[in-house]
C-alpha cells in the first residue's frame, strides 16, 4: 500500500479507538476480562455472607430467590455455592429462608470490617474521590487477609467509625453503636447532628455530595413534608427531597449540647470581620486535617481575612500572626463563630 495522508490518519484513528476500547479505565475490555478471570468462589461466598448480614441486621429475611436477584452472579453459581456453604456450616436454611450461622456471622463481620477500614483508609491516606470509596472497598474486602487487616487498623489508629459514619467492627467483633433517626422523619424545630451518610445507591449519594452536606455538622430542621426537607447547617440552608433525606442519619441533640446558630463556615467570613475558630468539620480528613491543625487552625484561635486573590479564590487568612492561604473548599470545612461587631 502506498503512503497517503488519508490512509495514515485512518490507520491512526483506528488504532487509537481500539486502544481506547481495550484499556479505558475500568470499562475497557482488557480490565473486564481480567476481572472476570479473578472473580472466583471466594468472592461469591463473601458477597452472599455480606448480603445476608446486612438484611438480618435490618430485620429482613432472605431466601435464595431474593439473593440471586440482589447479586450479580448467575443463579447456578449461587445455588452451587450455597450448597457448599451449608456443608461448611456458614449458613443454614430454615424452610426457604437462609440464615447465618455464628461462624458465618463472624466471617461476614470480618468482611464488613475490611470494607469499612478500607473506606477509612481511602479517606485518610489517599486522594480518591468520595464517590469512588465504596467501589474500591468492594474489591478490596476480598483481598486482605487477617493480618493485613489488623496492620491496616493499627496504622489508621483503630478507628471506631468509617468515613460515612458506619461503625467498624474490631478484631474481636466489637462495634460502637450508631443510633439516630433518618433526617426524613425528624420533626420540624429539632436540632441534631449528622452522624451517617449512606453511600448507596450512587445516584442519591451523588446528590448529597453535590449539596456539600458535611458529616458531623449540627442541623436544625425548619420544614419537613412530602415535598421536601429543609434544614439549616453551619449557616447555610439546604433543601432535600425526602428520599434523599432518608439516606442521612441524624442524632437528636439535647438542649444543653446545642450550640447552633453561631456556627458558620469560614468561607462565609467577609473582609474586616473577625472570628474565632470552633473546630474543623469531620469532612476534612487525613493529612489535610492534620496540616490545618498543625498550622494553627485550632479551637479558640482568632482569625480574619488578610488578602483575597484576584480570582477570589484562594483567600489568605491571618492566623496566629501568619498569613496562610486556603482554597474555598478547605475554608468551608473550618467552622467559626463571628465576633460581634461593636462598630469601628
Amino acid at each position: 500500500m502506498n503512503y497517503s495522508p488519508t490512509y495514515a490518519l485512518l490507520i491512526f484513528f483506528g488504532f487509537s479507538i481500539v486502544t481506547y476500547l481495550l484499556f479505558r479505565p475500568r470499562k475497557g475490555l482488557f480490565w473486564v476480562i481480567k476481572n472476570n478471570l479473578e472473580s472466583n468462589e471466594k468472592i461469591v461466598i463473601e458477597d452472599i455472607l455480606k448480603q445476608l448480614y446486612h438484611s438480618e441486621n435490618s430485620g429482613k429475611e432472605l431466601d435464595v430467590n431474593s439473593l440471586t436477584n440482589a447479586l450479580k452472579f448467575s443463579n447456578s453459581t449461587i445455588i452451587d455455592v450455597i450448597k457448599k456453604m451449608t456443608i461448611n456450616e456458614l449458613v443454614e436454611s430454615d424452610g426457604d429462608v437462609l440464615k447465618l450461622t455464628s461462624t458465618g456471622r463472624d466471617y461476614a463481620l470480618r468482611i464488613v470490617r475490611v470494607h469499612r477500614l478500607w473506606e477509612k483508609y481511602l479517606a485518610e491516606k489517599t486522594g480518591f474521590d468520595k464517590i469512588e470509596w465504596h467501589g474500591r472497598a468492594e474489591e478490596m474486602e476480598h483481598k486482605l487477609n487477617h493480618e493485613e487487616t489488623n496492620l491496616l487498623a493499627t496504622q489508621l489508629g483503630n478507628p471506631k467509625y468509617d468515613p460515612h459514619g458506619d461503625p467498624i467492627p474490631t478484631k474481636l467483633g466489637k462495634m460502637a453503636d450508631l443510633d439516630g433517626e433518618f433526617l426524613s422523619s425528624i420533626a420540624v424545630g429539632s436540632v441534631g447532628r449528622i452522624i451517617h451518610i449512606e453511600d448507596e445507591p450512587d445516584v442519591i449519594y451523588k446528590q448529597i455530595l453535590a449539596e456539600n452536606i458535611h458529616i458531623g455538622s449540627q442541623i436544625r430542621v425548619v420544614e419537613n413534608n412530602k415535598q421536601r426537607v429543609v434544614f439549616y447547617a453551619e449557616g447555610e440552608e439546604f433543601k432535600l427531597a425526602p428520599i434523599v433525606a432518608a439516606n442521612i442519619t441524624v442524632s437528636i441533640l439535647k438542649k444543653e449540647d446545642v450550640i447552633e446558630d453561631v456556627i458558620v463556615r469560614l468561607s462565609s467570613l467577609k473582609e474586616n470581620e473577625v472570628a474565632h475558630i470552633l473546630g474543623i468539620s469531620k469532612e476534612s480528613r487525613g493529612d489535610r486535617r492534620r496540616r490545618l491543625l498543625d498550622l494553627g487552625f485550632v479551637k479558640g484561635t482568632e482569625i480574619s481575612i488578610d488578602l483575597i486573590s484576584p480570582m477570589q479564590n484562594p483567600t489568605a487568612y491571618l492566623v496566629k500572626g501568619t498569613s496562610i492561604a486556603l482554597r474555598k473548599d478547605q475554608a468551608s470545612k473550618i467552622l467559626i463563630k463571628k465576633d460581634v461587631e461593636y462598630g469601628e
Binding site: G127, R288, I324, A325, R327
Partner: peptide, 9 residues
C-alpha cells in the same frame, strides 16, 4: 495520590 493545599505568605 494525596493532595493537601496551603500556602504561607
Amino acid at each position: 495520590e494525596v493532595s493537601t493545599f496551603n500556602l504561607e505568605l
